[in-house]
């Protein structure tokens, strides 16, 4: 009951923040001189990518904690994070493609940033497939923890790809500065806050679903035991 109320507050708050962000994107943020209005995809594209990275980081930490403590709680949090990470990465790839078409004149190019992002998506889709294919809970949790840890190697590669290799993907956040107008930075900050709040909401609900499934399995086990 208390969880339901918190979820509702979080959904309302993140929706309000998102609407504020959309308003500011169209009526406050300046239009970029070269790319024009389509550059405004950036205000959703970048926060989506950051939230995907955050999801995989949580999965990485949960994987380490599961292997150390062998507590199923960490497996549940890790799997919830990966699923949400895959949703966000899918949207990053789609929005990136929609931005690339009018600017680069192509939907897709095998650029280091794009290729490493696609590999990231494939790694975590494979994680979900692995999760569905192993029956025994402990073995599944161990395999998935290892995969979340190893898969995380690609996250810094994606982040650094546009800095390390020759790429056509723009680098906005540099080591000592952000290459944007102050008005653009404030709109990006609001958009980032909106997506973070939404991400927290999703993680809470998604993890609870898995905890509920675990509870159902335990209740069914108790029931079966009582009947025998």
């Amino acid at each position: 009951m208390k969880d339901d109320l918190t979820d509702r507050i979080l959904v309302v708050l993140s929706s309000v923040l998102m609407l504020t962000a959309v308003y500011m994107i169209f009526f406050y943020a300046p239009t970029e001189r070269v790319m024009g209005i389509v550059q405004k995809i950036f205000y959703f594209h970048l926060p989506l990518a950051f939230m995907a990275f955050l999801s995989y980081f949580v999965a990485f930490v949960s994987g380490v904690l599961y292997l150390v403590k062998k507590d199923i709680k960490w497996d549940i949090i890790g799997s919830a994070s990966v699923e949400i990470g895959v949703v966000f990465t899918t949207l990053v790839l789609i929005t990136g493609s929609l931005w690339a078409r009018p600017i680069w004149n192509t939907w897709w190019t095998w650029d280091p940033r794009l290729t490493s992002s696609l590999i990231l998506w494939l790694i975590y889709v494979a994680y979900i497939i692995l999760r569905m294919s192993v029956e025994q809970a402990e073995r599944r949790a161990t395999f998935c923890a290892v995969m979340a840890i190893v898969g995380f190697i690609d996250v810094p590669i994606v982040f650094l790809s546009a800095r390390l290799w020759r790429t056509i993907h723009p680098v906005v956040i540099k080591s000592k500065s952000i290459d944007m107008e102050p008005a653009m930075i404030s709109v990006l900050a609001i958009s980032m806050a909106a997506f973070l709040l939404f991400w927290i909401t999703l993680i809470r609900i998604r993890s609870r679903v898995d905890f509920m499934e675990l509870r159902i399995r335990n209740l069914e086990k108790i029931k079966r035991g009582g009947m025998e």
Binding site: I37, I41, H45, T90, T95, R101, P102, T201, L202
Partner: peptide, 22 residues
């Protein structure tokens, strides 16, 4: 106008994707 279509498609897909998942 064409650019606006790409922008609208991107925002529509993001909103539809996130809220359908929720």
């Amino acid at each position: 106008m064409k650019n606006l279509t790409y922008l609208a498609a991107a925002y529509g897909i993001v909103w539809a994707g996130l809220f359908s998942y929720l």
